[in-house]
């Protein structure tokens, strides 16, 4: 009899342990998925881009003060001339520029057979460059530092035209407003360190929600009622304090709505 009792108790403990492990695994999976999504979308440190799949300029600064200006072309099988794209521009400052590294640069001194060589002209306060990407060479970049600068001015062209949407400053899709744009000291570092909700795509998403307050209120109210009702039917219905808990749930919902509206009004 006692053996049977022990066995059944052990089985119950085993089942409980298994359920606990399952719940833990589920929680871990959800948290890691959320982290991956947030990290992918916001990407700490440098703008998110995939060489050969993203097209445009990507500019960022690292903690050591170095600047990194990279450009990438998206692969296109049907494009003519091996998808040749010209990235050209200049960097101007009141400080002194030191080139640290030319990333995947196909200069004259490196390869003599190349038709469209990448060219860079370096002066103490000015850098000019012309570089080409193709389906086979889809990324180039310049790593540089500047001493004693108060500003840095960039003039970046994509196939000889300005395409501001394809310039990311510090974080992906944070584009300049003017064709020739100025970066102040540590501006890129500040952009990279911004919390995720102030970066794209969350910043635009929250802006649109705050712009259309009528929609946001109706939407939040509807979703809130659905969630509270789901909790009511699934959990609260079995509770002894059913009525109390219902009032609390709806109270919380309306409190959230009030807080959201205060935030929207103060913005």
């Amino acid at each position: 009899m006692s053996n049977k009792y022990k066995k059944s108790t052990n089985r119950r403990i085993n089942i409980k342990e298994r359920i606990d492990i399952k719940t833990k695994i589920k929680k871990l999976l959800i948290i890691s998925l959320l982290l991956i999504v947030i990290l992918t979308l916001t990407n700490c440190g440098r703008p998110f881009y995939v060489p050969g799949a993203s097209m445009g300029y990507f500019l960022w600064q690292t903690e050591d003060g170095n600047y990194h200006l990279y450009w990438s072309n998206d692969w296109d099988r049907n494009a003519s001339n091996d998808n040749l794209r010209k990235f050209s521009g200049s960097i101007r400052t009141d400080g002194v520029i030191t080139i640290k590294n030319l990333y995947l640069w196909e200069g004259e001194e490196l390869t003599k057979d190349i038709e469209n060589v990448d060219i860079i002209k370096v002066e103490p306060s000015r850098v000019e460059f012309i570089a080409y990407t193709t389906n086979h060479d889809y990324e180039d970049g310049i790593d540089f530092s500047i001493d004693n600068e108060t500003y840095v001015e960039f003039n970046l062209k994509n196939n000889d035209i300005y395409d501001l949407g394809r310039i990311s400053l510090g974080s992906f899709a944070n584009s300049p407003d003017e064709e020739i744009f100025i970066i102040s000291e540590d501006e890129l570092l500040y952009e990279a360190k911004k919390p995720f909700y102030l970066k794209h795509p969350f910043s635009t998403f929250f802006f649109k929600l705050s712009y259309d307050r009528v929609f946001t209120n109706i939407y939040l109210l509807l979703m809130g009622i659905i969630v509270v009702e789901l909790i009511r039917v699934s959990i609260l219905l079995k509770s002894k304090n059913y009525k109390k808990l219902i009032y609390i749930s709806y109270g919380i919902l309306f409190l959230i709505l009030i807080i959201v509206n205060i935030i929207l009004l103060t913005k």
Binding site: M55, W75, F172, S175, H200, T204
Partner: peptide
């Protein structure tokens, strides 16, 4: 599909087909 959330971000977001193509 996500462009209404942030048009600039998702229009310029790298195409998954291009990533696979690599």
């Amino acid at each position: 599909l996500f462009t209404p959330i942030d048009s600039r971000y998702f229009v310029y977001f790298p195409d998954i087909v291009d990533i696979i193509r690599k």
